[in-house]
C-alpha cells in the first residue's frame, strides 16, 4: 500500500542550523498493516510522517501509494489517499466552524469542492450515527463550534474525520501526546476500534513504548534518520519494553535509558 524507497531529507542544508533528518530510509507497508513507530527526539519520526503527507518534498528517494508515485505531489493532492491526525489537537479541525461543517469537509476529502450546498438533513443523520460511535456525547452537538470541545474530543473528532472518506493510508503523529493520560487512553481505544475494525493501513507515531507494543501488528524503531528495528507478527506480540531496549542497544551500539524514549 505504501512503498518508500531510500528517502533522505536535510533541513537548512549548508547553514549552521543544518539538520539531517532522514538518511536513506526505505519502508514497505502491506495493506491492512498497523505499524507503530517509536524513537527518541530527532530520530526522524515526524519528518518521515511529513514526508509521506507532503508537508515538504524529500531530497531524494521515492514514495508510492498503491503503486502510484506521489513523490512530487503537493500536500493537498496526497490528501486524496491519506488521512491524518496531528499531535496538536488544534491542527486537525477548524475551530470556528461547527462540528457538522468540519465533518462535511472531511467527508469530501480529496474531492474537488463544488457549488452544492454543504449540508443536508440526510447527512446530519449520518454524522449523528458516526459521532455516537465515539461515545463522547458529541452526537447532540452537531451545531457546536469545534473550538468549544476539549482536546480529547477534538482528537477523537479529527480521527473520525481522517477516516471518514476511507483513506488508503492513515497517519497518526503522536496524536495522544498532548492529552492527559485518561483522555489519551480513551482516544487510543477509539483508534484501535476504528483502525482494526476497518482494517486501515496505518502508521502511528508514539512516544510511549507500551502503547507501541500494545497496538498494531508491526513495530519500527527509528534512530538517526533511519529504521533500526522492524518487528512484526508473533515476534512483536511477545516483545516487552526491556526486550526493545536490549534490541536497541545491540543495534545502535549505544545505551538508551527507557526514560529518554518514554518521556521524549
Amino acid at each position: 500500500m505504501l512503498r518508500i524507497e531510500n528517502i533522505a531529507k536535510t533541513f537548512n542544508p549548508g547553514t549552521i542550523t543544518e539538520k539531517v533528518a532522514l538518511t536513506g530510509l526505505s519502508l514497505h507497508l502491506a495493506p491492512g498493516e498497523f505499524v507503530t513507530v517509536i524513537g527518541g527526539n530527532g530520530a526522524g519520526k515526524s519528518t518521515l510522517m511529513n514526508s509521506i503527507a507532503g508537508t515538504f518534498f524529500v531530497d531524494r528517494g521515492k514514495i508510492f501509494i498503491d503503486g502510484e508515485d506521489i513523490t512530487r505531489w503537493p500536500e493537498y493532492r496526497r490528501a486524496k489517499y491519506i488521512g491524518r491526525v496531528f499531535q496538536d489537537p488544534m491542527m486537525g479541525t477548524a475551530a470556528g466552524m461547527m462540528i457538522e461543517e468540519n465533518l462535511a469537509i472531511a467527508e469530501r476529502r480529496g474531492r474537488r469542492p463544488t457549488l452544492a450546498w454543504s449540508s443536508s438533513e440526510e447527512k446530519r443523520q449520518e454524522y449523528r450515527e458516526l459521532l455516537l460511535s465515539l461515545g463522547l456525547g458529541l452526537e447532540d452537538r452537531l451545531e457546536s463550534k469545534v473550538g468549544l470541545l476539549s482536546g480529547g474530543q477534538r482528537q477523537a473528532l479529527t480521527l473520525l474525520m481522517a477516516t471518514m472518506a476511507s483513506p488508503k493510508l492513515l497517519l497518526l503523529d503522536e496524536h495522544t501526546a498532548a492529552l492527559d493520560p485518561k483522555t489519551a487512553a480513551q482516544v487510543l481505544r477509539i483508534t484501535k476500534t476504528i483502525v482494526e475494525g476497518r482494517n486501515l493501513t496505518t502508521l502511528m507515531i508514539t512516544h510511549n513504548m507500551r502503547d507501541a507494543l500494545a497496538l498494531g501488528n508491526r513495530l519500527i524503531m527509528m534512530y538517526e534518520g533511519r529504521i533500526l528495528i522492524d518487528v512484526a507478527g508473533e515476534e512483536k506480540k511477545r516483545l516487552t519494553v526491556p526486550d526493545l531496549l536490549k534490541m536497541f542497544e545491540q543495534a545502535a551500539g549505544s545505551e538508551m535509558t527507557s526514560d529518554s524514549l518514554l518521556l521524549s
Binding site: G92, A104, I105, R108, P113, L115, A116
Partner: peptide, 26 residues
C-alpha cells in the same frame, strides 16, 4: 456562496489552512 462546499473550504482556509490542506483542498 459561503454555505456551499467551495465557500466552506474558503472559510476553513481562514480558520486553519493545515486542516483544509489535509482534507485535499489547495
Amino acid at each position: 456562496f459561503f454555505g456551499t462546499e467551495i465557500g466552506a473550504a474558503i472559510r476553513a482556509t481562514g480558520f486553519n489552512p493545515n486542516m483544509i490542506r489535509a482534507n485535499g483542498v489547495n
